[in-house]
C-alpha cells in the first residue's frame, strides 16, 4: 500500500486537482443557472417562466450521463464544439443547477409574506426588493439544502472521466488498467473523494451557513 502511494500518489493528486477545478467551475455554473432559473420560474412574464420550467424539467428528468454525452457528442453537430474540460463542468453544473433552481424557488417562496409587503410599503422597485430584502433572507434558508447538493455535484464530476477529462476517477481507471491493482487504485480514489466531501465541502458550507445567519442577526 505504501509503495503504491509512493508510486502513484502524485498522479492521484494531479487527478484530484482536476476534480477540484471541475468542482469549482461546475459549482459556479450551477449557482448562476439555479439563481437564473429559480427567479425565472417566479417571473410574471410567461416566456421567461416557461423557459425556466423547460430547463429545469429537461435537466432533472434525464440522467447526468445522458446530458454529458449529449453535450459532448451531439452538440458539435449543431456547430457548438466544446472541449472536453468545458463540456464536463458545464454539463455537471447545468444538471445540478436545475435541482438548485427548485431550492432557490422554494426558499424565495418561504420568505414571509410580511417581508414582501414591507418592501412594497417602502415603495421599493421589485428588483430592489428582491435584491435587498428577499434574496438575503432566502439565501439563509437555501444554504442547508445547497450543502447536500454540493456533495452531489462533487460526485457528479466523477462522470467527466467518461469523456476523458483526466480527473481523479480517470486517473484511478488508468492506474487500474496499467497495474490491475484495483483495490488500491479505486480505494484511494474513494478515500480522496470522501475527504474532499467531508473535510473541505461540508465544513465550508457549515461555515457559510453560520456566517450568513450571523449577518442577518439570527445566531
Amino acid at each position: 500500500m505504501w509503495e503504491f502511494l509512493q508510486t502513484y500518489g502524485p498522479r492521484l493528486l494531479d487527478g484530484a486537482l482536476v476534480t477540484c477545478a471541475q468542482f469549482i467551475l461546475a459549482a459556479l455554473v450551477a449557482c448562476v443557472a439555479a439563481l437564473a432559473a429559480g427567479l425565472g420560474r417566479l417571473s410574471s412574464l410567461w416566456p421567461v417562466r416557461s423557459l425556466s420550467v423547460v430547463y429545469i424539467e429537461l435537466f432533472r428528468g434525464t440522467s447526468l450521463l445522458v446530458q454529458l454525452y449529449w453535450i459532448f457528442f451531439v452538440l458539435p453537430l449543431f456547430g457548438i464544439s466544446l472541449p472536453k474540460f468545458e463540456a464536463g463542468f458545464l454539463s455537471v453544473g447545468l444538471n445540478v443547477g436545475a435541482y438548485g433552481a427548485e431550492i432557490v424557488r422554494g426558499a424565495i417562496q418561504a420568505v414571509p409574506r410580511g417581508q414582501w409587503e414591507a418592501g412594497y410599503a417602502l415603495s421599493m422597485s421589485p428588483a430592489k426588493r428582491m435584491r435587498r430584502i428577499i434574496l438575503p433572507q432566502a439565501l439563509v434558508l437555501m444554504l442547508p439544502p445547497w450543502g447536500n447538493l454540493m456533495i452531489e455535484l462533487l460526485k457528479g464530476t466523477a462522470l467527466v472521466a467518461l469523456i476523458a477529462v483526466p480527473d481523479l476517477m480517470f486517473v484511478a481507471k488508468q492506474i487500474n488498467g496499467a497495474t490491475f491493482r484495483s483495490a488500491e487504485a479505486f480505494g484511494a480514489a474513494l478515500v480522496i473523494y470522501y475527504l474532499l466531501a467531508r473535510v473541505l465541502i461540508t465544513p465550508a458550507m457549515r461555515g457559510l451557513e453560520r456566517a450568513m445567519a450571523r449577518r442577518l442577526g439570527r445566531a
Binding site: L154, M169, A172, K173, S182, F186, L190, A197
Partner: peptide
C-alpha cells in the same frame, strides 16, 4: 453510510466490479 453517500457511484461500481475477482 456517510462514506457511501459522499463518494461517486461510478467509482463504487468500478470498485466492486474490479475488486471482487481479486
Amino acid at each position: 453510510l456517510e462514506f457511501i453517500r459522499s463518494t461517486p457511484l461510478v467509482v463504487q461500481i468500478f470498485f466492486i466490479f474490479y475488486v471482487g475477482p481479486q
